[in-house]
Amino acid sequence: MPRMTVNGRPVQFAMAPETPLLWALRDAANLTGTKYGCGAGDCGACMVLVDGQALRSCLISIAEAEGRFITTIEGLSRDRSHPVQQALVAEQAIQCGFCTPGIVMSAAALLQRNAAPGEEDIKAAIPNLCRCGVYPRLMKAIQRAGRVIRREETISSAPAPGISASDAAHAVPAMAPPRSDADN
């Protein structure tokens, strides 16, 4: 019954210890942002952070992950505010979105250790496969995320989820604040 910390919470998986972390996350913890694309380490759609390092969760068992700190796409930020998330949306470096969580995790790990990566650093750090072909935008997006981390730039392209109706009405004239029951 391997135990670990997933997105800041202690978790114990009642699964066979050789179960790949990917399937424990998806099918036991319901953290479905981590995707299955190949199960063989070829595509990177299942990339998560293990003690801060980007690893393919299809290639590590929950036994091997015992005692580690796991961060999935759901735990990277509470509100899409991670610079990589903001930059990918700003550059529209996303199409179908299936490979996106894995790319976000690879890029987040890179920028965590090197906030000013060169092109070669980025190419080496992003092994992820994207069949829609967002690559031409990725380089720019990751460099831009680096600038945000270095506080040279700010981006607010992806709004936080769950905006309240009154906040929405405050920001967008066309939106109406919620009416009280008496008005209905």
Binding site: G33, Q85, L88, V89
Partner: peptide, 15 residues
């Protein structure tokens, strides 16, 4: 801007 990207970048977009 594309409507689907915010949900695609935080893992909540469901397939």
């Amino acid at each position: 801007p594309r409507l689907d990207l915010p949900a695609k970048v935080d893992g909540t977009y469901q397939f």
